[in-house]
Amino acid sequence: MKVLPSRSNEWVRSVTPQKPASAIIEIDRVSQVFQTSARKEHLALSEISLTIEEGAFVSILGPSGCGKSTLLYIVGGFVNPTSGAAKIKGQAITGPGPDRGPVFQEFALFPWKTVLGNVMYGPRQQGVRAAEAEAQSRALIEMVGLKGYENFYPKELSGGMKQRVALARTLAYHPEVLLMDEPFGALDAHTRTRLQNDLLNIWERDRKTVLFVTHSVDEAVFLSDKVVMMSKSPGRIRHVIDIDLPRPRRRNELLLDPRYQKYVVDIERMFDESDEFGSPS
């Protein structure tokens, strides 16, 4: 093969986008049926198809009971869909793996481990040497704002701090996709805002793909590149909205931005409309 002259190489680079957006997760006609009793079945998800691009922050927004968490668990490999398939980088998802890191509303920390022990758990499991894992984990703990709390047990921490630890613990094993299941749902409004800001700051550094489940419209708009709206009974995708707001996003600027306000108002209206398809909330 003939080597191209350097000049033409430069030309090629200049017209190619910096990072071509490629699909990292593909969800193909996924349905989920739950057996609620011996005779009754509940269709939690109906024929969901969705493609998530690498490096995108995508929120799944919907009323409670629309199956949005179930969809996340299917991508995580924690739940097998009744029909359809989910893929990561073209490979069928058959179970959980370190390429997809979950962060749950319930934190799910290991209570017998300290903050440091929790964060080191993943890297150690991946075979990283203890000294190296510890150094990385300490840096992560500092990044999520918990320096000084390394030797605390989860029980000694507040909800917000626990969720910071959970985020650090998941980031520690370098998943390619973060799966966040209403991570700030159990926190008070003030703590929630602070964690949203911090999550954005952390995310804007390395732009991992994030799939973020929430039922809060402004949280979804504030954080995401794309909002996927679902309705319930059965769980279906109603709208997919691209959030075209500049980054890095600052909360105080964004709240005053008419474009942000319009997104929130529009999506809230769609939310109410889609709710009418389901049972009254």
Binding site: F78, P98, G101, F104, E106, F110, W112, G122, Y173
Partner: peptide
């Protein structure tokens, strides 16, 4: 907690490892 086991599974713990390294200490 199921989610605790899921967190372990995502880190690559096998079912037996989850029993010994998550269920055992959590139930201690």
């Amino acid at each position: 907690e199921e989610k605790m086991l899921w967190s372990g599974a995502a880190m690559g713990l096998s079912p037996l490892q989850r029993l010994v390294r998550i269920v055992l200490p959590a139930a201690l």
